[in-house]
Design a protein around this nucleic acid. Structure first.
Length: 154
DNA sequence: GCCAACGTTGGC
DNA sequence: GCCAACGTTGGC
């Protein structure tokens, strides 16, 4: 089953917010980057594993796991003029942006810090380290398996 | 808050 | 289609 890394700023919506959501499930929306959109719309599938990553905060790194619960659907925020994610060029007929729902699975006892990831050879090819700004990105099977051993070692 | 990296926009 | 200008992301 494929693994993905989803980035979020915990000051906006962190893993604690996901945990506190009804059914521990929330909409992952506000993606406004085409490469991230394409992954979300075309490649992420129900039951895939999501590694939640906190950026722009004190402890930058992977903080827990979630599961994809539905296929991507048009992000309603693109049609809402009140939303910061409004896009005047998106129409009902031709949606531009997509979102999906994920369910919280696990919060790690301690985050796997970016600082640590950078030091672990089996993770040296992670997209995270190559394409710093991509907010939805694939995690390879060997990377995921190695990360799981890191979690279990905690 | 700084700044490097990178994505997007728009004139030509 | 190029590319300069500009905007955003994100680690530090």
């Amino acid at each position: 089953m494929p693994h993905w890394l989803f980035k979020t700023e915990p000051s906006e919506f962190g893993i604690a917010d996901l945990t506190n959501s009804p059914q521990r499930t929330a909409r992952w929306d506000g993606i406004r980057n085409y490469q991230a959109r394409n992954f979300l719309r075309d490649n992420v599938s129900p039951n895939d594993t999501v590694w939640i990553y906190h950026s722009q905060c004190k402890e930058v790194g992977l903080v827990g796991l979630a599961r994809v619960v539905c296929a991507a659907y048009p992000d309603p925020a693109q049609w809402n003029p009140e939303s910061p994610y409004f896009d005047s060029k998106a129409s009902r007929e031709n949606p531009r942006w997509y979102c999906l729902d994920i369910q919280h699975q696990q919060t790690f006892p301690r985050p796997i810090l970016l600082r640590t990831i950078k030091q672990l050879a089996p993770l040296s090819n992670m997209v995270l380290l190559k394409q710093g700004r991509l907010s939805i990105q694939p995690v390879s099977e060997p990377e995921a398996q190695f990360l799981l051993t890191q979690v279990q070692a905690q």
